[in-house]
Design a protein around this nucleic acid. Sequence first.
DNA 1: AGGTGTGAACACTTTCACAGCA
DNA 2: TGCTGTGAAAGTGTTCACACCT
Lengths: 210, 210
Amino acid sequence: MRRNISESTVRRLSFYLRILEKVEAVGIDTLSSEKLAQRTGTTAAQVRKDLSLFGSFGKRGLGYAIPQLASELREILGLDRTWRVALVGGGRIGSALFEYSGFRKRGFEIVAVLDADSSKVGQRWGKVVLSDIADLEKVLTAESVDIVILTIPAESVPDVLDRVVAVGVRGILNYAPVQLRVPGDVTVKDVNMVLELEALSFALSQTKGE
Amino acid sequence: MRRNISESTVRRLSFYLRILEKVEAVGIDTLSSEKLAQRTGTTAAQVRKDLSLFGSFGKRGLGYAIPQLASELREILGLDRTWRVALVGGGRIGSALFEYSGFRKRGFEIVAVLDADSSKVGQRWGKVVLSDIADLEKVLTAESVDIVILTIPAESVPDVLDRVVAVGVRGILNYAPVQLRVPGDVTVKDVNMVLELEALSFALSQTKGE
DNA sequence: AGGTGTGAACACTTTCACAGCA
DNA sequence: TGCTGTGAAAGTGTTCACACCT
């Protein structure tokens, strides 16, 4: 719909959807911005502002109809479809992610796993057979991959990243501790566990001396 | 030091430190805000603003002396010490994190692993013997744990979280897909892989229709 | 000249407050 | 009455531009 939706808004939309699905299962069919805010740790005004960026989904005096709003949110977030995901890097983090069932539940299907280690290539993980990272272009194209998850060592990233982008993938989830530089039409999200720990370290150090 | 430092500033400080250490290894001893900005994907003004929140570390006409600035940043971020970390949850994600060497390099030492599965309790992972989560209070106290990493299922979180906070831990890195409510003196950082994928899904869906 | 440190301008996000509809 | 949708106000973070030091 509109332009410039902030990262924080998108994150909150995900939270809203999660709560709606939880509440829907219990059989409640309407929810106020106040209730939704409480359950997601934000404010009622924020909820209404976020939703109003995309349309008018509520009823005054009543609140939001849960199934309708959930369906709107799914559409807004692009979760009304399946996304084909390739895991590049079959190491420990890669395999932990592969086993994690939360992805599939949300429509992210891991359709390929690639690794540089020739002893791993050919292994079968569930329905997926590991491919050689040398065949990256071939595999990503053949499997119509939308999103790539990078769990390779930092030093391999620049080369692999270029190839992934060149083949037309426009969404990348990066677990490597490096800053990626990509064209403007490619979106990168970083997950960096050390960075989060450092932020904790900072917070703990600050409050310490007060 | 000072008031309200933003999350983004802290994240950038971590990036700066990383680059400084990389560049120091190459033998360069001075760096301008412009160069530092380029390598961390921000602007020179931003670098100077961030650093100026904590002091005047640069020399006009010259730039920043690398070893000094690195050492200042380590102190600011609380990385001039070792942090004792407990891993609560010894499943796939937990074990992947345990094996990840990046934590130790930055001074985060995993001194305890706890799990609810009695068949895992007593297993030895490197130097650490897995404890029963029933003994959480005892273990966290005995090991003087500063930071807890939660990699347990969402449904176990509320109970475990209460106990972790009650025993005095003030830093939590949460991998469970739930919103944690904690007292004000406790800092929580969430790592949520599905949330990041949903943000990618949103971004890809937006640009699609243009 | 070269590059920092910083107030002031700007941009973006959140909160407030209330008109208006069910 | 109850609760949404939204302009306006407040609050935060980023960028600009320049005085000032080496």
